[in-house]
């Protein structure tokens, strides 16, 4: 029973309930929505955002931020496309994508954790640089006309309507969740984000932890780029622009605190599903897609304000309790 209760207190639980509520409200507006196919396709279309969100979740947990993932994803997608044009195989594409992610991650990690530049500023800079490299590699043109092995698996269904890509994404989410919540080294991310000084004192290297977080973030962005190229079949030079903000919003919706040290991977994955299905839900409710950003904004603001207020109340309650117990003790002694 206690376990169930603590499950309901978990921060990601509220975002799951929120997702279910969203589906139910849409279902009331248009009962046609509540069909298996529709709901599954909401999850399927969240593949890219899921990958980006769990990647950036590592970085956000350590208390930093990375706004260069959109460009990293675009670069990986463009390079994947170029390899596909030369009839390269899938393994070669994936390895290149991961290498791109590792490189951007190392650069970001060294700049932020090694030299100590504020992360927002540094990744803003690398964002433009990576976008520029994307422009140079693609020659400023849209990369298209891919070979069959790349375009094929995008809509391949593994079982019961779930695409292969989403299954892989979910497996990655589960691994990431297990690593960050169960393994010793995985818990370093949260420890560093919660209290960098304290983590340092107990012997956790903040430098290495942050560096690894950035590298993981880059790798996930690289894989997302592969999915992007495979799914859309063409990569423009602005591909992935703005995805970083959506991924950050997904993390926030999933209960990960931007000041670090709070949240988990399942929340980020659920947040990604919410972010990517809003457009689809609006169609069923009968609003045009122009309301997409408005609804996203309202939702995000409501969630973060409620979260901030409840957190503050919890802190005040704890303080009151502490004070009360202290005065009670004092009274007993006197």
């Amino acid at each position: 029973m206690n376990k169930v209760r603590s499950l309901f207190k978990a921060r990601w639980m509220s975002s799951l309930i929120f997702l279910i509520l969203l589906f139910l409200i849409t279902g009331i507006a248009d009962p046609n929505f509540l069909q298996y196919d529709n709901i599954i396709s909401c999850f399927n279309s969240a593949t890219m955002y899921t990958l980006l969100a769990i990647g950036i979740a590592f970085v956000i947990m350590t208390g930093e931020i990375d706004v260069s993932i959109g460009a990293t994803m675009g670069l990986a997608a463009a390079v994947t496309g170029l390899i596909a044009q030369q009839d390269g195989g899938i393994p070669r594409m994936l390895i290149t994508c991961i290498l791109i992610g590792v490189c951007t991650g190392i650069v970001n990690g060294l700049g932020v954790a090694g030299i100590g530049v504020p992360s927002l500023i540094f990744t803003l800079g690398t964002n433009s640089v990576i976008r520029g490299i994307l422009f140079l590699t693609s020659g400023g043109r849209t990369v298209e006309n891919f070979n069959a092995p790349l375009a094929g698996p995008a809509n391949q269904v593994l079982f019961a309507g779930v695409t292969t890509y989403y299954v892989i994404a979910v497996i990655l989410v589960i691994i990431a969740h297990f690593v960050t919540s169960r393994t010793r080294r995985g818990k370093y991310f949260i420890a560093v984000g919660d209290n960098p000084g304290g983590a340092n004192l107990v012997g956790i290297s903040t430098f290495w932890t942050k560096l690894v977080a950035y590298i993981l973030c880059g790798i996930f962005a690289g894989i997302a780029g592969f999915v992007f190229a495979s799914k859309y079949g063409q990569v423009m030079t602005v591909a992935g622009n703005g995805y970083e903000m959506t991924a950050i919003a997904a993390c926030v919706l999933g209960g990960i605190s931007l000041s670090g040290g709070l949240g988990n991977m399942v929340g980020a994955a659920i947040g990604a599903v919410i972010m990517s299905s809003i457009g689809r839900l609006l169609v069923f409710i009968g609003l045009s897609s122009t309301y997409n950003n408005t609804i996203t904004g309202v939702m995000l603001i409501i969630i973060v304000v409620v979260d901030a207020l409840t957190q503050r109340r919890a802190i005040e309650n704890a303080r009151r309790k502490r004070l009360l117990s202290r005065t009670a003790e004092g009274g007993a002694k006197a």
Partner: peptide, 14 residues
């Protein structure tokens, strides 16, 4: 007491 970055991110969407 919302973090400024999150709040203005929401604001930019809205």
């Amino acid at each position: 007491g919302v973090q400024p970055m999150v709040m203005t991110l929401g604001g930019s969407f809205l």
